[in-house]
Write a protein that binds this DNA or RNA. Structure first.
Lengths: 342, 342
DNA sequence: TATTTGAGTAATATCGTTTACATTGTAAAA
DNA sequence: TTTTACAATGTAAACGATATTACTCAAATA
């Protein structure tokens, strides 16, 4: 029942070779003869032998494991995890598997020990950070880490002057594209719903894109058509409600996220404003629900599969001693009914 | 730059004690004097020392890590991971963290090596399986594992005669409750949309609940009101379309999943059947989109937070040598507009 | 005073690999 | 025949901790 664990010595004994030969044979070293290898592999299979990961890691000082650290600002209510990040975790895991890496998952509080807890304790060879916003952009500890050859990449807005590697979606130009689409379909008075302060860099970039579209089209931007909102349905609802109350006229809403857009749609409907006839709506993210609201939401889709793969590739580069570059990912405008061109 | 890694020897040297004392002091052993402990802790912090996980694991033969294995039948198209499982992964990770366990995540193909790859190779102390359906219920390899004190629990339907520990939602009685709710709001001809073969045990149990509700209310079940469907929007759409074509009369649909229900709603709408006036609809799962379809979908919510916590508790019991019992989790009927009682 | 006790610490043996280095055997080159 | 080269294997030293056993030195007991 509680049989002794099979070790490489058991295999060696049964195969009549030394333990080191077993190790070499199973790790695919070219230094071992073909016959010997086959024999050893057969015995290993028969005895149901598996290399002990801890011993192997300890000796080789590699773990073949990536830590994925998720900082979810949900804060007190840990129940709801941002679905976008969950999807990302999925694609990271799959990308990592393609390189024979395991993924160690952890939800974090914003702390300075995240790195030590994973790479320095040899749990993982590198760390992928999700949801850290611009925390790692200017943080002093992060600065130190970068200069002590730490291995980590961050999903987040790519901003000039960042020292470490960031991978993020091309917020600015895809936002510009969305607003441009509204212009081309005849809308003029496009409002922006979402935070525009630098504290939430993603929203800020999307706001920049919104402005770019205006200047590219030589249209003048009405600052009263910008209303702040947090990334939630409720906040989007309130923002649009207050916009309506200002009596300011508008014929389209560009929302900084789908959640905001969904709240916005609710507010419009409550005031009997027809979508898209009177007001067109565009969101950002393409969360699953976006296609189910009515009218179905036009939005910008970030390719999470590519994102996961690229994050993994960058962190592996870093582990192998290269210095990965930050990278923008293109996003795609998904046109549905809410913007009125379908 | 590439400074030598700090080990417990460095601490020992600086503190003027032996290395073993350092180990004890930091692992909270009561065998070490108070002054010595404080001194050692201070030095450890100063030198930014972290216990090497691999060395520690190797020696102690424990990893403080749980493997979460997700078998997602999506198959060829790995892009879309079942959002329900993603949520589950989140709650498992958070529950595990509460017990100071890490989570190692892996997507699997259906294979017989999943166990060896994780616990036998000492990557993890135990394994939580998601999405294995009834694979582990009757599988011979699983049988062997159970009798060789392997540590694993499975999320899935609890079925009599299972040898290992399963945790699943109480499909049968919550389905019965949902159908009962339809009866009480005056519906008579309730159809069931979803597979009823034992191959998908969850759906089968939900079908059993549907039947139970009929027999409890002494109503006779019309077998022509049962249409098979897979767990997808498209399949739900087709199923309901074919039901409509049979000309069989019905005033409510109980769908085995929300995705099916969403497809069903589409089909009804295409035939200009009013929801809920002519036909009420109830789903199962409460995926995020359920509240966004229109009319908002009445459904049955599985409590993923509890589920994650219980899975973790069971696997820890198993690791500690106890024999955890399988367990049902209650589910909750979430009443929205699609069933017409709101 | 001699002996016991026990708290605190030191010494040492693992845990199961990987890997640098040493050794052997065989065949080609001198 | 002797040397050389190379391929295949063996030997043994890490890797960095934990666990067990053995020691020290004070206070308590006889």
């Amino acid at each position: 029942m509680t049989q002794q664990k099979t070790t490489s010595f058991d295999i060696a004994y049964k195969a009549g070779v030394s333990q080191s030969t077993v190790s070499r044979a199973l790790s695919g070293s070219p230094l071992v003869g073909k016959e010997t290898r086959i024999k050893i592999q057969a015995i290993a299979k028969e005895l149901n032998y598996k290399v002990d990961k801890n011993a192997s890691n300890l000796r080789s000082q590699k773990t073949k494991t990536l830590a994925v650290l998720l900082f979810d600002e949900a804060g007190t209510d840990n129940t709801m995890i941002n679905p976008f990040f969950l999807t990302m975790i999925g694609s990271i895991t799959q990308a990592a598997a393609a390189y024979q890496y395991d993924v160690l998952l952890s939800f974090q509080q914003l702390s300075d020990d995240w790195y030590a807890d994973y790479e320095e304790s040899h749990r993982a060879d590198g760390v992928i950070c999700l949801g850290y916003g611009d925390y790692l952009t200017y943080n002093e500890k992060a600065h130190d880490l970068i200069h002590s050859n730490a291995h980590f990449v961050t999903w987040g807005p790519v901003i000039a002057g960042q020292e470490s590697c960031f991978v993020g979606c091309d917020n600015t130009s895809s936002a510009a594209q969305a607003v441009d689409h509204l212009f081309h379909s005849g809308r003029e008075k496009v409002a922006f719903i979402g935070g525009a302060d630098e504290h939430c860099p993603e929203f800020y970039q999307r706001y920049q894109g919104y402005k770019t579209a205006f200047s590219n089209s030589k249209k003048t931007l009405n600052p009263r058509l910008h209303v702040n909102a947090q990334n939630s349905e409720q906040s989007g609802f309130q923002a649009v409600q207050s916009l309506i109350l200002t009596q300011e006229s508008f014929d389209a809403l560009f929302c900084a996220s789908d959640l905001i857009a969904i709240g916005a749609i609710k507010a419009l409907r409550e005031h009997n404003i027809a979508i898209p006839r009177e007001v067109a709506v565009i969101g950002f993210d393409d969360i699953p629900s976006a296609s189910y609201v009515s009218p179905a939401l036009t939005t910008i889709r970030q390719n999470t599969v590519d994102a996961g793969r690229i994050l993994v590739e960058k962190i592996l580069q870093s582990i192998h001693g290269e210095q990965p570059e930050s990278e923008f990912l293109p996003a795609q405008l998904i046109i549905r009914k809410s913007c009125g061109t379908i």
